[in-house]
Amino acid sequence: MSGFLTYCLQRFTPVLLLLAGVNAVNGQSQRFVHVAAGDYSLGRKGYINNPLRTVHTNGFDIAATELTNADFEKFVQATGYVTDAERRKNALVFIPGLREFRWLEDSTAFWRYPNGITRGGIADKMDHPVTTISYRDAIAYCDWAGVRLPTLDEWEIASRAGAPTTYFWGNEMTPLSSYANVWKGRDHLQADSTDGYMYTSPVASFKPNPWGMYDVYGNVFEYCEGRLPTDKAGSRVVHARGGSWWCSKNACSFFNSVDIGSVKRGASFSNLGFRVVKK
């Protein structure tokens, strides 16, 4: 019985605290969700990269949405920052027709042209998440804006919204389409826009999780800080979570609160972005 009470307290108390916790920050367009101090159950039993465990946080404020092109443009305009993809011409982009897990090398792609110049810019997509940036670019933004990336644990606490399940609504994938911009096609040989978007969608186009966070699953993978138990010693790979518009149930179904991806820190993909946490 005490376990049951603990569960209910863990599940509902943060929701009540949240009611007073959603707020805006001076100088930033994002809204932030306050996650209350407490102990949270994370991971899944027996899962090596994310074992079942209880984690304590002193509380933090995490952006309700992914960082937008408009936000990133302010940073670039203020600093003249040049991203990895612009310098190294090594961005990887997507067009329908590619085999699973294949991306196209495009030297013209960077955050203003996330899938290359011939596939259009972001002029009418300033409210979409910024993509085709590397982890290093995300850190540069954070340093400028006085914010930081969430840790792997913080991201999971916020995405779960108190739920112990694979998704914040349970273990079944079915409700996903109400909450996430993901790929619905069987493969990536044909374009898929059945949810209205083939690539990114404007942030907060889908329903939020119970704590008011949008696009925690789908839209773009979100860079986080932290290491996995399976990271090799000395490895410099970084991690991102939540799945993306590219992800389908057949290929990379990482649009959940359990799976954690790995990517090189200099990699720039049009399905990789981030959300921030207040320092």
């Binding site: 027996g46 899962y47 090594n90 897990f101 991306w103 993978f221 200099g266 990789l272």
Partner: peptide, 14 residues
């Protein structure tokens, strides 16, 4: 020669 996307690494399997 090129980077793999974020979800390319599969978790351990039972």
């Amino acid at each position: 020669e090129i980077n793999a996307q974020n979800c390319d690494v599969r978790p351990p399997i039972q």
